[in-house]
Computed example of a mutant assay.
Amino acid sequence: MKFQGKNFFLEYAEHSEEWTKATLTREEFEDFREKEEKLKKVTAENRDKDLEITRLENIITKIKTEVETFKNEQTLLKSELEKKISLLENQNKILTSQNENLLRINRERSNAERKLYPKKLHNGYIVLHQESYNKIFSFKVRGDMRGTFKNYSYNLLLYKYRLETPYLCNIELDSVKKLIIQDLKKYYHLEYLKELPRSAGFFEQIDFEKLLLNLKISTSERFYFIEFSSNVLIKEKES
């Protein structure tokens, strides 16, 4: 590259302030043009990147705004739900209290009607029939990995009962069943089982359990009656 001034025949150093133009060789010009094209390309790429960054920043800002709005809506919704839950819980407490009072009154009236005293303390159940019997429970349990089975057999002494309940027949059966199961657990400490598990461990510990089995509910003209079996003897004074 040559650096020239007004006097075309003189050449100046690159750092001189007297030259006014520079003459490039073809090779230097081609190199300059290549670098210029690269610079234009890089400039365009940087401009595109800046636009993309701006676009992404706008998206992020929008998402943050939406998230914040969603949080606020969720907070409001949570607050409203908590109020509704609190209201329902209070209503449930009131209804439960009213229901308990109605059941207590029902029990006292039925006790008085059947001359069971003290009417406010008697549980309202009358043992009408009681008998003992033996029942054999047999089952198989898979043994080792070879698919063998082990046989188990247990001879249990059970008691069959028929009781009159304090509940009038105008109460729905589903409600009565829940109340009866609760009562038998409360007054006789019996745990309700729909069926006995086929487990040797269970039968080996059965003497430590008080079970309510084979519960059946029937109606009369006035009161509900129940029949069930148990592995424990209910004493008359408990009823």
Rank of each mutant, 00 (worst) to 15 (best):
F70I: 05
K71F: 07
E73I: 09
E73V: 08
L76R: 13
L77R: 02
L77G: 00
K78D: 12
S79I: 00
S79L: 00
E80C: 05
E80T: 10
E80S: 14
L81T: 06
E82G: 05
K83D: 11
K84S: 15
K84D: 15
K84Y: 14
I85D: 13
S86H: 12
L87H: 07
L88K: 14
L88P: 04
E89L: 14
E89D: 15
N90P: 02
Q91R: 09
Q91L: 11
N92G: 03
K93D: 08
I94R: 07
L95A: 05
L95F: 01
T96R: 11
Q98E: 15
Q98H: 07
E100I: 07
L102N: 11
L102R: 12
L103S: 10
R104Q: 08
R104Y: 10
I105E: 14
N106G: 03
E108T: 12
R109D: 10
S110H: 05
A112R: 06
E113S: 14
E113T: 10
R114Q: 08
L116R: 06
P118W: 04
K119V: 12
L121Q: 15
L121V: 14
H122W: 03
N123Y: 02
N123H: 01
G124T: 05
G124A: 04
V127H: 04
H129Y: 06
